[in-house]
C-alpha cells in the first residue's frame, strides 16, 4: 500500500533521514518507534509532502490500481487519495469550533455529511457534547480525539498517527489505543509513530525501529517486544 524506498531527507545541512525504507501492506498496523529526534516525525512529513526528500521513492496505491509517486504530489491532493495524517501535537485549528474542525477534515469531500459526523460522534461522544466549543479550550485528551475524528472525516485508507499518546494520562492512552485497534478492525491501515514503544508494539503487526535517521531493526510487534535490545533501549529493561 505504501512503499518508502531509500529516502534521504535534509534540514539544511542536517541529514535527518538516511536511506530509510519500509513498507505498509493493506490492513496492517505498522509501528515506527525510536527515541526523540530519531526522525519519526520527519518521515511522516516526508510521506505527506510537507518536506521533500533529497532522494528516494515513496509510492502509494489506494487499492484502485495505479501507483502514485508521493514525492511529486502536492500535499493537499493526498487526503483525497485516502491518505490521512494526524500530525504530532494534534495541530487542530484552535480558534475554530469542534464542528468546524471536523468540517475541515471533510474538506476534500466537499460538505461534511451528517452520516460521517454521526460516525465520529459515536466513536467520540465527548466531541458531540462539545461541538460548539472552541477547540483551543478542549482538554489535551479531547484535542487528541478531535484530531483523530477530524482525520476520520476524510475516510482514510491509510491513517498515519504521530504520537497520539503524547501528554495523555494512562487511562486516555488506553482509550486512544482501543480506538486505534477498532479502526484497524474496521479495515483501516495504520502507520503509527510512537514513543510509547510498549503500547505500540502490542498493537502493531510489524514495526520498524528508527535510530538517528536509520532503520536499525524490523520485525513483528511480538518479535521486537521480546528482543533484548529493544527491551533495554525502549521498554525500560
Amino acid at each position: 500500500m505504501l512503499k518508502v524506498d531509500k529516502i534521504n531527507v535534509y534540514y539544511e545541512k542536517i541529514h535527518a533521514i538516511k536511506d530509510v525504507s519500509f513498507e505498509v501492506n493493506p490492513g496492517e498496523v505498522v509501528a515506527l518507534i525510536g527515541a526523540n529526534g530519531a526522525g519519526k516525525t520527519t518521515t511522516l512529513h516526508t510521506i505527506t509532502g510537507l518536506i521533500r526528500p533529497e532522494s528516494g521513492q515513496i509510492t502509494y496505491s489506494d487499492g484502485e490500481g495505479g501507483q502514485l509517486d508521493l514525492t511529486k504530489m502536492p500535499p493537499h491532493k493526498m487526503v483525497a487519495k485516502g491518505l490521512a495524517h494526524v500530525p504530532e501535537g494534534r495541530r487542530i485549528f484552535l480558534q475554530m469550533t469542534v464542528l468546524e474542525n471536523l468540517e475541515m477534515g471533510a474538506f476534500c469531500k466537499g460538505k461534511a455529511s451528517k452520516e460521517d459526523l454521526d460516525n465520529v460522534f459515536a466513536r467520540f461522544p465527548r466531541l458531540e457534547e462539545r461541538k460548539k466549543q472552541i477547540a483551543g479550550t478542549l482538554s489535551g485528551g479531547e484535542q487528541q480525539m478531535l484530531a483523530m475524528g477530524r482525520a476520520l472525516m476524510s475516510h482514510p485508507k491509510l491513517l498515519m498517527l504521530d504520537e497520539p499518546s503524547m501528554g495523555l494520562s494512562p487511562i486516555l492512552v488506553e482509550q486512544i489505543f482501543d480506538i486505534i485497534a477498532e479502526l484497524h478492525k474496521s479495515g483501516t491501515t495504520i502507520l503509527l509513530v510512537e514513543q510509547n514503544a510498549e503500547m505500540a508494539l502490542q498493537i502493531a503487526d510489524r514495526a520498524y525501529v528508527l535510530e538517528s535517521g536509520h532503520v536499525v531493526m524490523t520485525g513483528t510487534g511480538a518479535e521486537l517486544a521480546a528482543s533484548e535490545e529493544i527491551r533495554k533501549a525502549y521498554l525500560g529493561g
Binding site: 510537507l50 500535499p75 491532493k77 495524517h85 485549528f93 480558534q95 468546524e100 474538506f107
Partner: peptide, 15 residues
C-alpha cells in the same frame, strides 16, 4: 481561517 491558523495542517485537510 484554517489556513490562517496552520498552513501545514490545512494542507493535510486537502486545502
Amino acid at each position: 481561517r484554517a489556513c490562517s491558523e496552520d498552513k501545514d495542517a490545512a494542507q493535510l485537510m486537502g486545502i
